[in-house]
């Protein structure tokens, strides 16, 4: 039964959304790139999270290394050591990366980044040109490392039937206790920093920026609310003594400071132009920028939708005020 609802999808619409790439190469666009070009793009677009050598920063995924670790304790599962299909890397990077600015890479850039990841895993030479033509020449080491779900044979057949109800064991002893390495979050207490090797999903805690002594004339309550709002910014921006540039610049001293002034950060052309024009990040300018970044500064690299609520803008600005230079 047809209901006659919906309308025909136009070819341009399908082309805009249908970008998936399959293991047999279906969906690969024409284009090419090598690891040398890829290294530059990777440094700019990917290294803030994945590290200059695809080794991963903090908890962000490691993309290289881990060869021959899959049968060891805590295997390192990277594109090189674990992923079965190279198409998956292209498909994912093209559609979902860079984090916070998805879908902005050209096809050639994606080929180059994928080539750099292969190179970082010692799987190709740096002059190998990855393209839709050569894609099938690369086989990933763990291509044969997967089997289909076999629980029906290995588990279901064994773990069924009438279970034991009485005298099922001679004695019962506690063999392991969560108290020993309690990593449970508690209210009014920061998350536990020490995580021992007992966890399969073990990961290291992201470095927390310490809140520095507040300068005078800070509304402490508002700043505290701003700290919460700042969670939205933390993926890209750091503050505090140990802050480093990530995909966004360090924000120490931002309130009342000159725009485009952080050493070592590659600003967008738009922001450079604004800085040359003498833009100072007064609370008013910052609030306007934060409300709608892309509208305020056309061409900004900041891939953030904006803080709609004025009280959130005010709070985060108050919080940022607590980080002077």
């Amino acid at each position: 039964e047809k209901f006659g609802l919906g309308r025909a999808a136009l070819p341009e619409e399908i082309a805009a959304w249908d970008g998936d790439v399959s293991p047999n190469g279906d969906g690969l666009p024409s284009g090419s790139g090598d690891a040398i070009v890829g290294e530059e793009i990777f440094a700019e677009q990917c290294a803030v999270c994945h590290g200059d050598f695809a080794e991963g920063i903090d908890n962000w995924p490691k993309l290289a290394g881990g060869a021959d670790t899959l049968d060891h304790e805590d295997p390192l599962k990277t594109v090189g050591s674990y992923w079965p299909h190279l198409s998956t890397a292209f498909d994912y990077i093209k559609r979902s990366m860079p984090y916070g600015n998805a879908g902005t890479l050209s096809d050639d850039e994606v080929y180059a980044i994928v080539a750099y990841i292969l190179y970082s895993n010692d799987l190709i030479e740096d002059d190998f040109v990855l393209s839709d033509e050569t894609f099938a020449d690369v086989e990933l080491p763990n291509a044969q490392g997967f089997i289909l779900d076999n629980r029906a044979e290995t588990e279901y057949a064994i773990w069924s039937g009438e279970p034991c109800m009485e005298n099922c064991k001679d004695e019962v002893k506690v063999t392991m206790r969560a108290m020993v390495l309690d990593v449970t979050p508690e209210e009014n207490k920061p998350a536990t920093a020490e995580v021992t090797q007992a966890s399969a999903a073990k990961v290291e805690e992201t470095e927390e920026a310490p809140v520095e002594a507040a300068a005078p004339a800070i509304d402490a309550e508002l700043a505290k609310a701003g700290e919460k709002v700042f969670k939205k910014c933390k993926a890209c921006h750091q503050v505090g003594a140990k802050a480093k540039n990530r995909s966004g610049p360090v924000l120490n001293g931002i309130v009342g400071g000159a725009s485009g002034a952080v050493d070592g950060f590659k600003y967008s052309k738009a922001l450079k132009a604004a800085a040359e024009g003498g833009l100072v990040w007064t609370p008013e300018e910052l609030a306007a920028f934060l409300a709608k970044p892309k509208k305020y500064l056309k061409g900004t690299k900041m891939g953030f939708a904006g803080l709609k609520k004025e009280k959130d803008q005010a709070a985060v600005i108050e919080y940022l005020k607590t980080f002077a230079e």
């Binding site: 999270c49 908890n59 990961v203 290291e204 992201t206």
Partner: peptide
């Protein structure tokens, strides 16, 4: 709802 901060790099993912 509660989060376990050490599990992931940020709260967005």
């Amino acid at each position: 709802r509660r989060n376990v901060e050490w599990l992931t790099a940020d709260t967005v993912s």
